[in-house]
């Protein structure tokens, strides 16, 4: 059986557009995201929308719908003063802060939402936050680790045209430099050992945290030293945020 060029041309077109039509009829042809982020599947936040799944195509309005933070507040936090806040797409921040030495973008919004709502978020990478957003977060009850992280990753607002939306205290500065958290300002920064998602039980022991204290916090025998605290919590269905806070308190005790 032979195929001519005419038949092949028809086959290519029919298969591509026919396939699209069939998938469309089956509801499988989606060229945009549903604007519904993935949800936490376990722990105390199970069922809640996960800020880590916020996409650049989301508008502030989408975030308000999913996370309950108003578009006006987000606009104020990120210095968006023009247009309708609810229609502003998160990925627009990259353009707005293009002149900033530090990246302010989708990750910054994810972190802001997680901190604002007190939801878990991986802090193993550097994510920067404009001063206006940091000021709003400081009004929330952040735990010491988050407070220290925020202070170490706050940069001046540089967005063009955003001055009008900012309080006077957040006027732009000439050179953007992260404000390193002073060591004595918060209890946590007194310690150089921070409990993070990647911290293993072996590290906790090496920092001098007694085995008994760890076992009491996690409510069971000490697991393999190579296992990370976060993995253990995930496997056991424990809240990593709660365990982490308790472990950090033990680490700080040792330092004192």
């Amino acid at each position: 059986m032979n195929i001519t060029s005419k038949t092949l041309a028809a086959l290519v077109i029919v298969m591509i557009f026919g396939g699209i039509m069939v998938s469309s009829a089956l509801g499988l042809w989606q060229t945009t995201t549903t604007k519904e982020p993935a949800k936490f599947t376990e722990g105390e936040f199970a069922g809640q929308a996960n800020p880590a799944d916020i996409r650049g195509s989301y508008t502030f309005g989408d975030i308000e719908k999913n996370f309950g933070i108003s578009g006006m507040l987000l606009a104020k936090a990120f210095g968006v003063s023009e247009g309708e806040p609810d229609a502003f797409q998160v990925k627009g921040l990259e353009e707005l802060y293009a002149s900033s030495e530090f990246e302010i973008g989708t990750n910054s919004v994810r972190l802001f939402v997680a901190f604002y709502n007190g939801q878990p978020y991986d802090l193993s990478t550097d994510i920067y936050m404009p001063e206006s957003a940091a000021e709003l977060l400081l009004e929330r009850n952040l735990d010491p680790e988050r407070l220290a992280y925020l202070q170490a990753h706050t940069v001046p607002n540089l967005a063009a045209g955003s001055e009008s939306a900012l309080p006077p205290a957040t006027a732009p500065e000439a050179t953007p430099t992260p404000q390193t958290a002073p060591a004595a300002e918060t209890p946590v920064t007194a310690s150089t050992n921070m409990v993070k998602g990647k911290t293993t039980f072996g590290e906790l022991l090496s920092w001098g945290v007694p085995q008994a204290a760890i076992e009491q916090i996690i409510g069971g025998p000490l697991p393999e030293p190579s296992i990370t605290a976060k993995d253990y919590c995930t496997a056991k269905g424990l809240s990593f945020e709660t365990i982490k806070t308790q472990l950090q308190a033990e680490v700080d005790k040792v330092k004192k």
Binding site: M15, I16, G19, G56
Partner: peptide, 18 residues
Amino acid sequence: VQKVHQSAFTLMAIGFAL
């Protein structure tokens, strides 16, 4: 993966079938 949508799966399947 972020930026990728369900439609890409359909096109992938069509590409494989072809």
